[in-house]
């Protein structure tokens, strides 16, 4: 399977929800020690629900595309729903199986998210 599908490359060049939130309620960061990739997730909550979500960082196409998908999936989620997203959900959305060596690239955002759950 080609992991460099059109969707991955599109999201790498034009990531969704890319940026930061100056007055964020929560900021989560995660790094991939293997390659030095970094990812920051910014949350703004309203009535226990995600009102605004952004991410930024540096990483490969797989990690940037995955973070785009993750932030899309998190939009409008209640705080207690944050743990419902799995790595498989993200991979299904991207339509790839990254294999063991690239799995961590695809789940860097989820690793960051674990810190709030």
């Amino acid at each position: 399977m080609n992991i460099y599908r059109e969707i991955i490359l599109d999201l790498y060049r034009n990531p969704l929800n890319f940026g930061s939130i100056a007055n964020a309620d929560v900021v989560l960061s995660e790094t991939n020690q293997l390659c030095g990739d970094t990812l920051n997730l910014f949350f703004k909550f309203k009535n226990n629900k995600i009102d605004l979500i952004k991410f930024n960082g540096e990483g490969c196409a797989i990690s940037i595309a995955s973070a785009s998908i993750l932030t899309e999936m998190l939009k409008n989620k209640f705080k207690n729903e944050l743990s419902t997203i799995t790595s498989q959900n993200i991979l299904d959305e991207l339509g790839i199986n990254p294999g063991p060596t690239r799995f961590r690239c695809a789940t860097l955002g989820l690793e960051a998210l674990k810190k709030i759950i």
Partner: peptide
């Protein structure tokens, strides 16, 4: 702007083994 990990994955598909990352020399 191809991340070195992506490049290594693409080259691996061609049977070429290269290394990517910080090479333990940050």
């Amino acid at each position: 702007d191809i991340h070195s990990h992506d490049l290594a994955s693409i080259l691996d598909k061609e049977g070429i083994a290269i290394r990517s990352g910080h090479h333990c020399a940050k």
